[in-house]
């Protein structure tokens, strides 16, 4: 009788929406470039693995956009290494969809199966 696997690094459920905070948009993406100061370019990916188009309002609609995202403070404190090709979860502000905060690096077995 197989028990469920204990996972120390289980991705937490997305937080409940709290009325006191500005709501965030949480999406997944793939890191396409690593920039200085723990900034990354991240290509958004939808729940079924398809590329997501997000209207960032900077014109240039035909360009496959990548979101400029920084590593969340708690990830920097814990020295979570993120590199090109990693799947990450990030939060976008509804006011500026071109910028994001990386809040989770997904391990290989947490990636959306395709």
């Amino acid at each position: 009788m197989p028990p469920p696997r204990n996972q120390k690094n289980e991705a937490p459920a997305p937080p409940e929406e709290s009325s006191s905070k500005t709501p965030v948009i949480e999406i997944e993406g793939e890191v396409v470039d690593s920039l200085p100061n723990t900034m990354f370019l991240v290509k958004p990916i939808g729940p079924n693995g398809q590329p997501l188009r997000i209207q960032t309002g900077d014109g240039d609609d035909d360009e496959p956009q990548a979101i400029l995202a920084h590593l969340a403070g708690k990830m920097r404190l814990r020295f979570i290494r993120v590199g090109v090709g990693d799947r990450v979860r990030m939060q976008l502000s509804p006011y500026d969809l071109s910028r994001g905060r990386i809040t989770w690096r997904l391990r290989a077995d947490q990636r959306v199966e395709r």
């Binding site: 009788m1 197989p2 028990p3 469920p4 696997r5 204990n6 077995d109």
Partner: peptide
């Protein structure tokens, strides 16, 4: 299936270690 794992066994059914199938 990664959600369930094999396990050590002895005086109890589920003991350390976990035995994943990957």
């Amino acid at each position: 299936v990664r959600r369930f794992v094999g396990h050590g066994i002895g005086r109890t059914m589920h003991e350390s270690p976990q035995v994943p199938n990957f």
